[in-house]
Computed example of a mutant assay.
Amino acid sequence: MKSILLKFSVIFLVILLSSGFTPKKNKSVQDFQGKAYYFSKAKMDLGTWGARLNEGQKKEVEARLKNRLQKNYVLTFNKEESFFEEEDQLDAMSGATDSWGKNFTPGHQYKNVKTNSQVQNQEFYGKNFLVKDSLQPIVWVMGKETKEIGNYTCFKATASIPTNELTWYNFSWNRLNETADDSTKDDIAMTIVEAWYTPQIPVGHGPLEYWGLPGLILEVSAGNTTMLCSKIIINPKEQVEIKAPEKGKIVSKQEYQQIISKKMIEFRDNRSGRRRG
């Protein structure tokens, strides 16, 4: 009797496999997905030039720069992957998108914490680049402080990260001058980062370059900018495929920065030549 049942079980298993049947994976592993909505605010530093402005002029400048000082983002994530993108905003004064600013802002960013990889598409003056590199190494110092962000209990973590590594998609004349000056090569500018993460969402994701904590990062402050999560949706009804961007010239972060620097020097030299002419 046992041999008959064993033979029947084997035959039934063969039929199931030949018909294309495969056991379903645990839903929490296969289908888990979330969306986190962030907004960022940056403090405006007008330097010595701003000291000459009255309060009315300062408010006018703030209104014109609002799109660059306040931005909205969406982070779509699962257990291993995330996709980070900025929501388009209209210029407060002209009603147009900020085309100049987009040359120096982060493009669509894909991160994979399992493979330690990052893919980000960047557009610089009409040319598309596909920046492929490793995730930014971050040594987090875990704190014991906690606070509530929405319905989530968050823990504090801090890190010191090279400033240039956090803003590799941007351009700075100061950075260019430091690279050319051998005396400053050993003096690396660092940015102190403060992050708040929640173990209630146990994924190692976060906005921008930030990742690697035992919970989703809901708030992060670096330099004069703070990014805060305003809404979280776990397992939305309509899930999307999280995949890396594919179009553009493939370069590393360092190569992309070299391309930007070279082009900005050309712009400066061409402008200087026209003035002399």
Rank of each mutant, 00 (worst) to 15 (best):
S261I: 00
N177D: 14
K58E: 10
F171W: 04
E241R: 13
D88S: 14
T146F: 10
F77S: 09
A36W: 05
V193W: 05
K71G: 01
P162E: 02
A222K: 05
E266L: 03
I250T: 04
S272W: 03
T179K: 13
F104W: 04
E238M: 12
F39V: 04
V251E: 00
L166T: 07
C154P: 00
L6F: 15
P245M: 06
L130I: 11
N54K: 04
S160K: 05
K58M: 06
P214R: 06
N26Y: 11
K185W: 11
K249Q: 09
I201N: 14
T48F: 05
Q118M: 12
R276I: 11
S3P: 09
E165A: 14
R175C: 11
A96Y: 14
L75I: 12
G56W: 09
A195S: 07
K25I: 11
Y110P: 14
S117A: 06
V131T: 01
G212L: 02
K27D: 04
A195M: 04
L135V: 05
M44F: 08
A157E: 04
N164P: 13
L176I: 05
Y152K: 06
Q33N: 11
T22K: 15
A157T: 09
E145S: 10
I149W: 05
K43H: 10
S272E: 12
F104S: 01
V193H: 00
K7G: 15
S261F: 02
L46D: 01
M264Y: 00
Q258D: 07
L166V: 08
A195V: 04
S117E: 09
Y152A: 10
N164Y: 08
D98T: 10
T226I: 03
K43Q: 10
S160W: 02
A189R: 15
G223M: 02
W196I: 02
W100Q: 12
